[in-house]
């Protein structure tokens, strides 16, 4: 590869990195501004202030923020695990097996995926109140499945579709049952796709705002996006810009770490999971 081409790649890469990280840099910058420096009209703070982090981690907003962080992690991880497990089996059946009703399942998944969350949320609230799921972890995990399952099923079906099923048939010819063929041959091929899907599912659950705000009311289950709306400035009339930015950055740090950790897995998943020929 010529030097010129290399330079072009580097420039292109740099542009993408700036594009992706610029708003994050902006949040970092604003989170370091003191309340009266917020309106300085500049990208960078005039002087660095850690006050917003104190507010969020140890100060007045910590009682809101820290439990919310714990809830977000717990609820999203559980929802992701359940939805990936269920979707894996469903997607295998849809991509591989011939049985009546798979169109029904796919259409249902699509319908669930596209139904406006807003209109599900009020009736759900009433049921949750009656059966005691309101403001609990399961009370959010279940609706999160409605967000993550459809896309997991669809994405995994798309993945599974490209898997060389001849290999499974070959295994079946060799005497393996359908289940054995699935487990021994297909699972290793499908795992990278499942992993990528898991990441997507996690981020979808992590991103939820409407369920979080309607189906919770205390720190028992309230997730971070809902908690951000509860911060207050020095008085109720002041915008908690700095505190929101600090909290926003803190919830972004674990996500960045996850991305950096999973990045190789995604790369591996997408290259190894691909079918050559």
């Amino acid at each position: 590869m010529s030097t010129r081409k290399k330079v072009m790649w580097w420039i292109g890469g740099a542009i993408i990195v700036v594009y992706a990280l610029f708003p994050i840099a902006w949040i970092i910058s604003i989170s370091l501004k003191a309340p009266s420096d917020i309106a300085n009209g500049q990208f960078l703070p005039s002087s660095i202030s850690w006050g917003n982090y104190e507010t969020v981690l140890t100060g007045s907003a910590s009682e809101l923020f820290l439990p919310a962080l714990r809830n977000s992690f717990g609820i999203c991880l559980i929802a992701t695990a359940i939805s990936c497990l269920l979707a894996m089996f469903a997607a295998y059946a849809i991509a591989r097996l011939d049985f009546p009703g798979k169109k029904v399942i796919l259409s249902t998944a699509l319908a669930v995926a596209i139904f406006p969350v807003i209109s599900i949320v009020t009736p759900l609230f009433n049921v949750w109140r009656q059966i005691g799921l309101y403001d609990t972890w399961p009370g959010l995990i279940l609706p999160y499945l409605s967000l993550t399952l459809p896309i997991s099923i669809w994405t995994m079906s798309a993945f599974f579709r490209e898997i060389p099923w001849e290999m499974e048939q070959a295994a079946q010819v060799d005497g393996a049952t359908t289940w054995q063929a699935f487990r021994k041959v297909i699972v290793p091929l499908a795992a990278p796709g499942v992993f990528t899907t898991a990441i997507i599912a996690f981020f979808i659950a992590w991103n939820d705002f409407v369920y979080g705000i309607v189906l919770t009311s205390t720190e028992a289950a309230r997730p971070v996006p809902a908690a951000l709306g509860l911060f207050s400035g020095a008085s109720q009339f002041e915008d908690p810009t700095g505190a929101i930015a600090a909290a926003a950055l803190i919830v972004t740090i674990p996500v960045v770490v996850l991305v950096l950790l999973f990045q190789r897995r995604i790369v591996a998943g997408l290259t190894n999971g691909a079918v050559k020929g």
């Binding site: 003191a34 309340p35 009266s36 420096d37 020095a234 008085s235 109720q236 009339f237 002041e238």
Partner: peptide
């Protein structure tokens, strides 16, 4: 609230 806000901003040096 604008009054205590201004005073505390002065105190904070901003």
């Amino acid at each position: 609230f604008v009054w205590p806000r201004a005073l505390s901003a002065v105190e904070a040096g901003t």
